[in-house]
């Protein structure tokens, strides 16, 4: 136990301060907005609709101590029934079309949907084909888009917050 505590103390708190005053004010406003609309927190259900896994790696990074997504009152949940937002990656493959629609139908309102990454936004490099429906909006309505291949954790964070602020 002692070595663990020692490591924790040595690493310290690395969560990053908000970079610029203007952005910080905006983040505060958005955080207030989250509380107003959704109560205490925002619950996200992530769905990989056929990505290469690159976007998932960066979404995982949202939970690292630097970005510390939970510090904003945002967390990932296991079921779409518990989710305020679907965060979707990848072009929607034909083989995932049905599952994605089902997940969306299971969600309670307001059913926020964010397309994360170039593939989810536009179909990206994979586009539309015999196996791919392309962009998420071809399958379910999308509220916000976060481009990038893959988007960085900062871009993802900004995109998620912006989607709530709409």
């Amino acid at each position: 136990m002692i070595p663990v505590i020692r490591r924790i103390l040595r690493a310290g708190i690395v969560s990053e301060p908000r970079p610029e005053p203007a952005e910080a004010v905006e983040l505060d406003r958005l955080q207030g907005e989250i509380r107003r609309i959704l109560g205490r927190a925002l619950a996200i259900r992530q769905v990989d609709a056929g990505s290469c896994n690159g976007c998932e790696l960066e979404i995982h990074a949202l939970n690292n101590p630097y970005v510390n997504l939970e510090g904003y009152g945002i967390r990932f949940v296991a079921s779409p029934r518990h989710a305020d937002m679907l965060l979707i990656t990848g072009p929607v493959t034909k083989n995932m079309e049905h599952a994605l629609k089902t997940a969306w139908e299971c969600m309670p309102d307001p059913k926020l949907v964010v397309a994360a990454g170039d593939c989810a936004c536009s179909g990206g490099i994979f586009g539309e084909s015999y196996a791919s429906c392309g962009a998420v909006e071809r399958v379910i309505p999308v509220d916000a888009r976060i481009p990038g291949c893959p988007p960085t954790p900062r871009q993802l964070l900004a995109g998620i917050l912006a989607a709530i602020g709409r």
Binding site: G50, G90, T93, N95, I125, F126, S129, S132
Partner: peptide, 11 residues
Amino acid sequence: FGYAHKGIERL
């Protein structure tokens, strides 16, 4: 499996 099949080889 096959859920992530997006037709890469044809592309």
